[in-house]
């Protein structure tokens, strides 16, 4: 009998805690209806060497950069607070309008508050020869992931 009170309160607390967890879990749905993260970005011949291509930025928030050896895809989301930077061709840098972070064409941050470089997306050739960019796989420089074969499309 001496234990009835502690047991009762323990059970009550456990029930409260578990319903709290269940309520929190309610905030995270199992299925998300968000736009597709992968898209086909045309044939490699459509890009000029040495240029940062902005044609997919409005639709998919991705820049495709063509270098002599191949392609990489930069995700146009500032690593500071998620604004989308602009490519300033004259100054050869990405500049974020929210807090002034600046990035080189490679994606490396060099000014402003951004704590780390821009992220790169998976970029491969699809079966039909088009470039396939998949934003659901991201490569971060500071984790050494840019050397991953899918972070850079060799031509």
């Amino acid at each position: 009998m001496i234990w009835s009170l502690p047991i009762g309160w323990a059970a009550f607390s456990a029930a409260c805690a578990s319903s709290l967890v269940a309520t929190a879990r309610f905030l995270f749905p199992n299925v998300l209806f968000e736009p597709p993260q992968a898209f086909k970005a045309g044939f490699p011949g459509e890009y000029n060497v040495g240029e940062v291509d902005t044609r997919w930025k409005d639709a998919f928030s991705v820049w495709i950069v063509r270098q002599p050896e191949g392609f990489y895809a930069l995700i146009a989301v500032c690593t500071h607070l998620g604004c989308s930077p602009n490519w300033l061709a004259a100054e050869a840098k990405f500049k974020c309008p929210c807090h002034g972070s600046g990035f080189y064409a490679s994606g490396i941050n060099f000014e402003g508050p951004a704590p780390r470089p821009l992220e790169r997306a998976r970029i491969v050739l699809a079966d039909d020869g088009q470039i396939l960019v998949d934003k659901s796989t991201k490569f971060q420089f500071e984790k050494g992931e840019w050397t991953n074969p899918e972070a850079f499309l060799k031509i």
Binding site: A24, L27, F28, P29, L32, F33, E34, G82
Partner: peptide, 18 residues
Amino acid sequence: AGSDARFALLGGRFVGEG
């Protein structure tokens, strides 16, 4: 990105319908 504090606030990974 799909299970953090921001997701609970936005109901998604970016500012959208949710």
